[in-house]
Design a protein around this nucleic acid. Structure first.
Lengths: 198, 198
DNA sequence: CTGATTTTGTACTGACCCATCCAAAATAAA
DNA sequence: TTTATTTTGGATGGGTCAGTACAAAATCAG
């Protein structure tokens, strides 16, 4: 029927996602996106409606992946509830501990978007907010389970503890972006976990 | 001798700072800065070397103000060490609890800069890093004092606890930018304080 | 009032921005 | 092979970007 695509859309989306992740929305030009994906302008605009559309699809992809990853950890029935949270923080430390050469990490696209866009772009804000709800629900659930089995001794409502944990994770992303090393992040994670079991 | 300035440089710097704070570096155009300050391009470029220079001076101003404010709290001899930390978190909640109409806050220019710039602009990274050192030192000091007088029962090294507190504060800034309300931020602050006294 | 000096408003620069247009290339059905 | 359909590269468009040039305006010492 027609000329077939010379590129893999998923792969292109991945490349665009990384570009936005690294430099943010505003600092990433359409030319940067062409270079990152290896595509020409036509291919990009033929596949995605606009730079903004490409961004929201990149963000959606990022959220799906990251949240799926977190869900797998938080809903892993083989681990005790508290251990799942421990694993979640270990994962956070791993991804934030000096990913790049200069010792800084790329942080988290969700956090980055919240900071750069939350107040200005309703669609991005919606995506981030919806993701927050999902992650908080999973955290609440595992916290409640931990309180039931006694591994979490804090008597605070799961909702509050979930928000607390999510806030610390967000703070660790920022700290990683600011150059915090593994030992520092590990210590913060440990103190946070201790707060659940005091 | 010559024609005098028609504007107050401090006031202009303040306006520019708020513009960068609200929208970030990239999304703030020089035209935006003219509008925000009420100055013409000539006046801006006659006073500041470049957009980048204006940004670093805005950031420096922000850091000086905010850190002076935090220092006043953390070094207030009239309050017990733990109470100073309590006050610090109360202040953080106040500034992050729905500053704007849409329920989101502007966050913190330091955090915003870390996220938007840390990996790309060495000068901004330097300013932010130096500020981090100052704030951590003050936190370490008050934590050590709290451990000495017994109001802080955690046996963790002050360095680790200081990093932890700073990380939570950063996370709360992001949460505020994401729309967290006062009650949520208050609960997070309370859990964090409890972690020092368990 | 004159002249030296600085600020100011306006117009302008070249580069880059995001997006579109269009024709050549590539495919597969007819 | 022809035809319909889609992708692709390259050129192009209008607009905005950060920054500059320049002359008019404003001051004050002399």
């Amino acid at each position: 029927m027609a000329r077939p695509r010379m590129f893999d859309e998923e792969r292109a989306l991945d490349a665009a996602m990384h570009a936005f992740w690294e430099n943010g929305y505003e600092a990433t030009s359409t030319q940067d996106l062409c270079t990152a994906t290896g595509l020409g302008r036509s291919s990009i605009y033929n596949t995605f409606a606009s730079k903004h559309d490409l961004f929201t699809r990149s963000l959606t992809r990022y959220i799906e992946r990251m949240t799926a990853d977190q869900m797998a950890i938080l809903e892993d029935a083989e681990q005790a509830p508290l251990d799942r949270i421990r694993t979640l923080f270990a994962r956070t430390v791993d991804t934030e501990a000096g990913t790049r050469k200069d010792g800084h990490s790329r942080g988290c696209l969700t956090v980055n978007t919240t900071v750069e866009f939350a107040g200005r772009d309703p669609e991005a804000a919606r995506l981030v907010e919806r993701d927050l709800d999902v992650r908080l629900a999973a955290l609440r659930s595992v916290i409640a389970a931990g309180q039931t089995d006694g591994s979490i001794t804090s008597k605070r409502p799961p909702e509050e503890l979930a928000r607390f944990l999510n806030t610390v994770v967000g703070g660790m992303r920022v700290a990683g972006q600011g150059g915090a090393d593994r030992a520092t992040l590990d210590a913060t994670a440990q103190i946070t976990l201790d707060a659940l079991t005091n």
